[in-house]
């Protein structure tokens, strides 16, 4: 089975789509997928923040394009990812730095340190960083 390991380290809307589109497409193709959320990437699974992720300055007009193309919302993609058993790992160290608790995040995530991710990713076929 193909194994995909993704690091999500940025918290913008574009970053979120890159992460979740690839994760859900890979999972739908029978790959095992794990995402490690660290630093601003934690926004992508934060209860509140992931409903309104920022679009890069000067690119606000993309908002309309997203709607016209009927692109699913990040919340929908997260739900799909969970349905497809994508493993979502929040980085403990950055949570501590940013003073965030597990309750601040969506249900169904795991919390772990870098060693958790390294253990998961050591035999991955595809490793990506966003």
């Amino acid at each position: 089975m193909t194994k995909v390991a993704i690091i999500a380290a940025n918290g913008g809307l574009f970053d979120a789509y890159k992460v979740f589109n690839i994760a859900t497409a890979a999972a739908a193709s029978d790959a095992e997928v794990g995402i490690f959320f660290t630093f601003e990437g934690l926004n992508l699974i934060h209860n509140e923040a992931n409903k309104n992720l920022p679009i890069p300055e000067g690119r606000e007009h993309f908002q309309e394009g997203f709607q016209q193309a009927n692109v699913p919302s990040i919340e929908e993609l997260v739900t799909i990812a969970k349905d497809l058993d994508v493993k979502l790992i929040a980085c403990q160290m950055t949570m501590d730095v940013m003073n965030l608790k597990k309750e601040d995040f969506i249900d169904g995530i795991e919390v772990g340190g870098t060693a958790t991710f390294v253990e998961y990713a050591k035999d991955a076929n595809i490793s990506l960083t966003f």
């Binding site: 589109n21 859900t24 739908a28 193709s29 193309a69 009927n70 692109v71 699913p72």
Partner: peptide, 13 residues
């Protein structure tokens, strides 16, 4: 119909 990537694949799965 009307769905953007990756939804057609996800639905097909």
């Amino acid at each position: 119909k009307g769905l953007a990537c990756p939804m057609p694949i996800v639905k097909t799965r």
